[in-house]
Nucleic acid binder design. Structure first.
Length: 480
RNA sequence: GCUCCUGUGGUGUAGUCCGGCUAAGCAUACUGCCCUCUCAAGGCAGUGAUCUCGGGUUCAAAUCCCGACGGGAGCACCA
């Protein structure tokens, strides 16, 4: 990562402020990793701040999911807090702004406000004096109903930057907050909360995604009026995968319609889904760091992540045989009834014993390509000369067969073959269209050794690809 | 519509602030070879970008200036 502007060793404080309004996804990972890595780079601190100032959207469930996700990612924070911890402080600062004439209570209708913003016109409320604003402020805590009054920052209604046109500082929400219940009903807006929190928490460098870029001026203006210290702010592009939408607006209906099972569906870019699919946290981290801090908007291809993941996963994935569209191969003169096969080609991961008899299963696709009279090598077992093809193949075992220049295929003993469902996730959306074939479900057979593996273990089905054991009878394809 | 951000090989990026040391580095993808009882991993090599386009400044521009065009975002009592 490039050096930070104005950063002093040991004095950098960064932060990751997610709103607990949904399940964490790859976009959260990017923000969390960049901020925490910078803190690490300068021997500073990183704060996790749950940005919970909209009780309508936030839930404990999401709060917990974000923590679990971050934990899994291995991102560590020095301080964990919630924006709502500082409600009294926001009120104090809000009053300060009102009393210095930099904020006013507005009782206009939404439409009027919006219209005035477009026309760059001030509304009549902005002419009220400090005393009236103080009364209005009081009334917001008791009398006014939600929507009837808000506190606005006196920005510049003529500004080109639309967020400067007297933005909202406080509004009334009667919904129960997920931790505070009904204790408060006047809530700070994002801009006010971020400005004050970052300053108060001692944040020196704040990184967030590009869509907040225009708020920079506003945040600085608020802090200037309050005479509070301003952090350095920078922005990075949003991270999204091609054909894997992040937005709740798109994901929610998919789940409701049953097109996707849940937020951990392996086709999704949520942290939970990525984990379940077999993507390692270290791979996500490397991948994100490889993207750099660019502001150019791009759709990252998923195979870039896969390439990083493969490097992490290859070294300790057990190699196992798996056969799809099975065809029976009857092998005569097998000289032994069991065999030991190493679990990894180069690393020492032990061996497994496979009991065998004449009945062997091979892949349908391989069976198709075998012609009569040829030799194939059953990996780890030996060569077989095929003397009958068709629905059921037959062949003779050959002692000391050659290993080079011969078709090598994986196999499974029929009597102990264990059937599992293999989920193969594909791109969820193709050209904005939901891909009806985004999840293939294959019925496949593995060696019985599969049953001895731990849930969540990454395995490589030889000649097929890396997969993660999801349960005793289901695995998920990670990538090739 | 207005405002802001952005534009380097198939893809993701480094380099752009402080112009030359790079006719552009890395990764990934792709191709070939080596290794291998896997179509993985590993090793080696190769294809591939006049740095969106057009002007300008300069001895010299991906890098500075102007313009055009392409992409994204904001214009909420959401964050």
């Amino acid at each position: 990562m490039p050096p930070l502007q104005g950063a002093e060793q040991g004095k950098v404080v960064t932060r990751f402020p997610p709103e607990p309004n949904g399940y964490p996804h790859i976009g959260h990972a990017k923000a969390a990793i960049i901020n925490s890595e910078y803190a690490k780079m300068y021997g500073g601190k990183c704060i996790l701040r749950m940005d919970d100032t909209n009780p309508e959207a936030e839930r404990m469930e999401y709060h917990a999911a974000i923590k679990v996700g971050l934990d899994w990612l291995g991102v560590k924070f020095d301080v964990v807090k919630s924006t709502s911890d500082d409600m009294e402080f926001f009120y104090e600062k809000g009053m300060e702004l009102i009393n210095s004439g930099k904020a006013y209570v507005c009782t206009c209708k939404r439409e009027t406000i919006s219209q005035n913003r477009k026309e760059r016109k001030a509304c009549k409320c902005s002419f009220r004096d400090i005393k009236q604003n103080n009364q209005g402020w009081e009334k917001m805590f008791e009398k006014y109903k939600p929507g009837e009054a808000i506190v606005r920052f006196r920005g510049d209604m003529k500004a080109d930057n639309a967020v400067m046109r007297d933005p909202v500082l406080f509004r009334i929400i009667d919904e129960k907050h997920y931790t505070l219940g009904e204790k408060y009903r006047v809530w700070p807006s994002y801009d006010l909360a971020v400005a004050i929190e970052d300053s108060k928490d001692g944040i020196t460098h704040a990184f967030r995604s590009k869509e907040f870029e225009l708020r920079k001026d506003l945040i600085n203006a608020i802090l200037d009026e309050l005479g509070m210290r301003k952090p350095y702010q920078d922005f990075f592009s949003r991270l999204e995968f091609k054909g894997m939408p992040i937005s709740k607006r798109i994901l929610k209906p998919l789940i409701e319609e049953g097109k996707v099972s849940w937020y951990d569906d392996p086709r999704l870019p949520t942290l939970e889904a990525l984990r379940r699919r077999g993507i390692k946290a270290e791979a996500i981290k490397k991948f994100i760091l490889s993207l750099g801090l660019t502001k150019a908007n791009t759709l990252a291809p998923f195979d870039a992540l896969e390439a990083f993941n493969r490097k992490f996963v290859d070294a300790d994935s057990i190699r196992l045989f798996m056969v799809s569209k099975p065809k029976k191969l009857k092998v005569s003169n097998l000289p032994f009834s069991s065999i030991e096969i190493p679990n990894h080609p180069v690393n020492d991961m032990g061996k497994r014993k496979i009991e065998i008899d004449e009945n062997i299963l091979i892949c349908g696709d391989d069976a198709q390509n075998i012609t009569e009279g040829t030799q194939v090598r059953l990996l780890g077992l030996g060569n077989v000369e095929i003397n009958k093809v068709g629905d059921e193949l037959e062949g003779n075992f050959i002692e000391d067969g050659k290993t080079s220049n011969i078709q090598k295929i994986q196999w499974v003993p029929q009597k102990a073959a264990h059937e599992i469902k293999l989920l193969v996730p594909n791109q969820l959306f193709i050209d904005e269209q939901f891909n009806e074939n985004s999840l293939e479900e294959l019925e496949v057979y593995t060696e019985p050794h599969y049953l001895k593996l731990k849930e969540g273990e990454e395995i490589q089905f030889v000649r097929f690809g890396y997969c993660r054991k999801d349960s005793q009878n289901q695995a998920i394809f990670t990538h090739k």
